[in-house]
Amino acid sequence: MKKITAKKITVLSVLFLCVFLSGCGCGKKKKDPAGEQVLKISITPEPSPTPKPEEVNQDAVVTNGNITMVNEYLTKQGRSTDEE
């Protein structure tokens, strides 16, 4: 049998230590917390193109206070919800 010398044990120990440290995450870069944050986006509502309430079937028009809304589904179908 071959003798294991102190020099071989030292070299093997250092190699094992290097392999162990490289696998445990010591070489990984730390993540930047600013880069991990979610961007906050605010969406500005834009008015959608709706037909004028005077030009469509009055069953498709709903008024609530000073807001007038047109139901496009009823406008396209040309019927009211009472006919269903």
Rank of each mutant, 00 (worst) to 15 (best):
A34E: 12
T75K: 04
D59Q: 13
V62S: 08
V38K: 13
P51M: 09
S22P: 00
V38L: 13
V56R: 04
C18L: 15
T5V: 08
K28I: 04
N66H: 03
A34C: 02
L21Q: 01
T81C: 04
F20Y: 15
Y73P: 01
I43Q: 08
A60W: 02
I67K: 09
V61Y: 02
K52S: 11
R79A: 13
G35Y: 02
Q77S: 08
V38H: 03
G23I: 08
P49W: 02
Y73M: 11
I4Q: 14
T5R: 09
A6E: 14
L74A: 06
E84V: 11
P45A: 03
S80Q: 06
T63M: 03
E46Q: 11
K40N: 12
T63V: 15
Q77C: 09
L15F: 14
E72R: 04
T44H: 08
D82V: 13
S48N: 01
G35I: 07
G35K: 10
K3R: 12
V14N: 02
E72L: 15
D82Q: 11
S42I: 13
N71S: 10
S48I: 09
E54R: 03
L21T: 04
V14H: 01
N66M: 07
V70L: 03
V61H: 06
T50N: 09
T81R: 10
P33L: 06
P53S: 05
